[in-house]
């Protein structure tokens, strides 16, 4: 597979504080790639260095096989975490300005803008000042500025931050559609549940250091054992010699003790007064892996 992003031995410090420490990972063409980490873990710094907004201290950061240069912005859509918009400009003027900055002609920028605005239901508002739009509409404009030029790579820093549920769903649908079109999507987040559903591959960082990296399944396998997900009626039995568990009145997530076969646990449960509705063996959720890796620190 073709590498779209290649980061190798990358380090960045601010004064005496190391923000990112010797980080390495690759993103392949067509991937939806999640960049996971808690607040202040170094995600934004990495993206800023990748786009040459910050200068790295050491290491290699390549996009499309070479260091970033502004001419690449034609192929990249970037949505920063701290995003905003010129409130006193007309919607259509912003699309043309961003298009022109990416090296796209005014005519093409206008065509792209009309397509996008039509799609998200904002075409009637194209000549309005941004300040006249609702916050939900402004969010669509912000996202549109990153997507309007049909980029090959989308770099999204906390894309779900501040989105209302409707725009969030719209965004997820767009992710899936863009992936089908072959667009590579890299996004940072600390909303882990969403990442488990969406991503092909991921990296988890904590305090600027890589903690896990690979496909979602690989990371879940590598950093956790099999869990049993149970739905039941009756009284859930505690059997500490066989497992530990997190249970509610109707569900339980059972973590088998080392060397205990899940089948043995099933038999034990069937022998109890419990009425089992469903029994499923699965890997730990990405959320659990993420929390466990963060706790390791």
């Amino acid at each position: 597979m073709k590498k779209i992003i290649e980061i190798k031995d990358f380090t960045k410090s601010f004064g005496s504080q190391t923000a990112v420490d010797n980080l390495s990972f690759d993103v392949y063409e067509g991937d939806i790639f999640a960049f996971l980490g808690s607040n202040g873990s170094g995600k934004t710094t990495t993206i800023r260095c990748l786009l040459d907004i910050y200068t790295p201290d050491s290491g290699t950061l390549h996009l499309f096989g070479r260091p970033y240069e502004f001419s690449m912005s034609k192929d990249i859509g970037y949505l920063p975490e701290e995003r905003g918009i010129y409130t006193r400009s007309r919607v259509i003027d912003l699309f043309v300005y961003f298009g022109n900055l990416r090296g796209i002609s005014t005519k093409d920028a206008l065509d792209n803008a009309h397509q996008y605005l039509e799609r998200v239901g904002l075409i009637e508002h194209k000549d309005k000042q941004v300040s006249q739009l609702s916050s939900g509409m402004q969010q669509k404009v912000q996202v549109g500025l990153a997507l309007q030029h049909h980029p090959r790579l989308l770099l999204l820093d906390e894309p779900f931050k501040g989105l209302d549920p409707l725009n969030r769903q719209l965004f997820i649908e767009m992710f899936k559609e863009l992936k089908e079109q072959g667009v590579t999507i890299v996004y940072s987040t600390h909303v882990i549940d969403e990442a488990q559903r969406l991503t092909d591959r991921l990296v988890i960082i904590n305090d600027g250091k890589r903690k896990a990296y690979g496909t979602t399944e690989e990371v879940r396998k590598t950093h956790g054992s099999e869990h049993i997900h149970l739905e039941f009626t009756g009284k859930f039995p505690k059997r500490s010699e066989l497992y530990t568990s997190v249970s509610t009145t109707k569900t339980a997530e059972i973590i088998p003790n080392k060397g205990v076969d899940p089948e043995e646990i099933l038999q034990e449960l069937l022998a109890s007064d419990l009425r089992i509705i469903s029994f499923r063996i699965d890997l730990p959720s990405l959320n659990e892996v993420f929390i466990a890796l963060s706790k390791d620190e």
Binding site: R48, I53, P80, F98
Partner: peptide
């Protein structure tokens, strides 16, 4: 531009 959080977006292109 800074208050509107536009600068980072611009600095990725120019």
């Amino acid at each position: 531009e800074k208050e509107n959080r536009m600068i980072e977006n611009l600095l990725s292109m120019v």
